[in-house]
């Protein structure tokens, strides 16, 4: 189970063995999986589990409930930008510094995609589109700084 998880989802953070046992125990307690029995092998006996109908319904519900679109970075960067303007500091430089950090990460992800399997490429693409969204916000805010300064400082 751990190996299956790691193959699909664990490239950044593999699943800890302890977590597998704790999660199975919780699922069993909540009636989301059933114990089918034990299977003898060369090593210790393996327990086999099966998902219950309630468990399958829970997975389906989770799968088709959309995630809340969250403003990830903007709240912090927005606050920094406004504070920089309030303090009379260089907000443009602040945006440039953040843009450079974002571009660095984008280059890392582009490099990570080279020769990677499709699973890894899709994970990288997802991260890259989020970074691109932040970069668009940074560019747009940069173009609106003079207007924003007028609003923020009342100047």
């Amino acid at each position: 189970m751990k190996h299956g998880y790691d193959r699909h989802f664990g490239s950044e953070k593999p699943l800890a063995f302890g977590q597998v046992y704790a999660t199975l125990a919780r699922l069993l307690r909540d009636g989301l999986i059933d114990l089918l029995g034990e299977q003898a092998g060369s090593g210790p006996d393996r327990k086999r589990y099966e998902i219950t109908e309630v468990g399958r319904a829970r997975v389906t519900a989770w799968m088709f409930t959309p995630d809340t679109p969250e403003p990830l970075l903007q709240s912090n960067l927005f606050a920094k930008t406004v504070i920089a303007l309030l303090l009379g500091d260089d907000a443009n430089r602040l945006l440039d510094v953040q843009r450079a950090a974002h571009m660095r990460r984008l280059r890392e992800l582009t490099a990570a995609k080279r020769g990677a399997d499709l699973m890894k490429i899709l994970v990288c693409d997802h991260a890259m589109f989020h970074i691109e969204a932040d970069l668009r916000w940074i560019d747009l805010t940069g173009a609106r700084l003079t207007e924003l300064q007028t609003q923020v400082t009342g100047a």
Partner: peptide
């Protein structure tokens, strides 16, 4: 386009 630029070794910003 940032994604196109990410294939480069570095970027230069002109404003």
């Amino acid at each position: 386009d940032p994604r196109t630029a990410s294939y480069a070794d570095r970027e230069i910003i002109v404003r």
